[in-house]
Every structure is written in structure tokens, then in C-alpha cells.
């Protein structure tokens, strides 16, 4: 049987287009039943300068679905795991809630779910992606900050963006090989 070519899901973000409208955050809450007070995605804001020379930049962020995910490495029960296509997930039934992965994530992308007492995080909306849809945050974004797709597919928008545009990743020094790419 011919081996199916491997997929590698990733996200490309154009933060400059982010208007901090929180659509992605609320869409994620609705789609994934995320409790109040914890977030699978968020928008970081950085303000600088003095009146009237001011600057604000917004950085939408979520799990980076790292190539080398430290959360998966430290998980004592194997509840944190990574799919073939790179998506990092939590098996809720195996999670004992030790919170080690929360601490081990350089991006603070995980949270302790106050209702289920297990650890939660962005799943790239696998249930949507697997049926051919886009993650909720990508679909809902008014300013089209987020582009989602398969890095291994040369025709995919993420592949094309990354091969034509300058970009960076966050906290590369943490060594996790993050897969959220921010356009410069």
C-alpha cells in the first residue's frame, strides 16, 4: 500500500492586520466549550511611546503545535501527544491534571480546565479540520490575520506564504520548533 504523504499543519499569522477584536477568542470558546477565565487563544498587546508618538502592536497567539513539543515530552502519562500531522493534543481520559505540561510550555498555551480538572489547549480544531473545515478562529477572523494549512503541500497557502514572505517564530530560543509563523 502506498504510504500517504505526511501532512504538517501549521498556521501563518499576519499580526499587523490584527485589530484586537477578540472574534477568534470568542469563536474558540463557542466551538470548543472553553470555560470562562481560561483561553485557548489570546491576543497579546504591546504599547509603547509617548503622546503623541504612540505604537500598539497586537499578537494573536495560541498553541504553537511545536515540532518538538516540550509538553508532550514531560507528560508522565502520555496524555499529551502529537498526531502524525503535527497537531499536539491532550487525551482527556489519560490526563491526571499534574499541570507539568502547563509549566513546560514556553508559550503558556495550556490551562487547567476548572470544570474538568484536566489540561486544555488549542487543538487546531481537529474535529473541523478533519472534516475539511478551517479552525474556528481562522474562519471567523474579520481581518484575515490567520492562514491555516499543510506545510508539506506546496500548493497550500501556508507553504506559499512562507516561501515568499519574510517571517519569524516566537521564542525560538526555547527550542520547541514552533509552528505558528508570523509574517514580518
Amino acid at each position: 500500500m502506498a504510504k500517504k504523504s505526511r501532512k504538517r499543519y501549521a498556521m501563518v499569522l499576519d499580526s499587523r492586520k490584527c485589530i484586537d477584536c477578540k472574534a477568534c477568542v470568542v469563536a474558540c470558546k463557542a466551538e470548543n466549550d472553553v470555560p470562562l477565565g481560561v483561553y485557548r487563544n489570546w491576543i497579546g498587546a504591546e504599547r509603547s511611546g509617548e503622546y503623541p508618538r504612540l505604537r500598539t502592536s497586537f499578537d494573536p497567539e495560541q498553541c504553537h503545535h511545536c515540532e518538538n513539543p516540550s509538553c508532550v515530552r514531560v507528560c508522565p502519562t502520555g496524555a499529551s501527544w502529537q498526531r502524525e500531522d503535527g497537531i499536539v493534543l491532550v487525551k482527556y481520559d489519560d490526563c491526571i491534571g499534574c499541570k507539568y505540561c502547563i509549566i513546560a510550555c514556553p508559550y503558556d498555551a495550556r490551562y487547567h480546565n476548572p470544570e474538568t480538572h484536566t489540561v486544555g489547549k488549542c487543538t487546531f480544531c481537529t474535529h473541523r479540520v478533519d472534516r475539511g473545515d478551517l479552525p474556528a478562529c481562522v474562519e471567523t477572523c474579520p481581518s484575515r490575520v490567520r492562514v491555516f494549512g499543510d506545510l508539506e503541500d506546496p500548493k497550500s497557502p501556508v507553504h506559499q506564504l512562507l516561501s515568499t514572505r519574510r517571517h519569524r517564530v516566537l521564542k525560538p530560543q526555547a527550542g520547541n520548533g514552533p509552528q505558528l509563523y508570523y509574517l514580518l
Partner: peptide, 14 residues
Amino acid sequence: ACPRFFRKAEAAPV
């Protein structure tokens, strides 16, 4: 705003 990159959608939007 960025049509060049989106002519081909990754996940065929159902």
C-alpha cells in the same frame, strides 16, 4: 485582501 495566496484553499471549505 491577499488573493494571491488563497486561490487554492488548503481545506476545501465545506
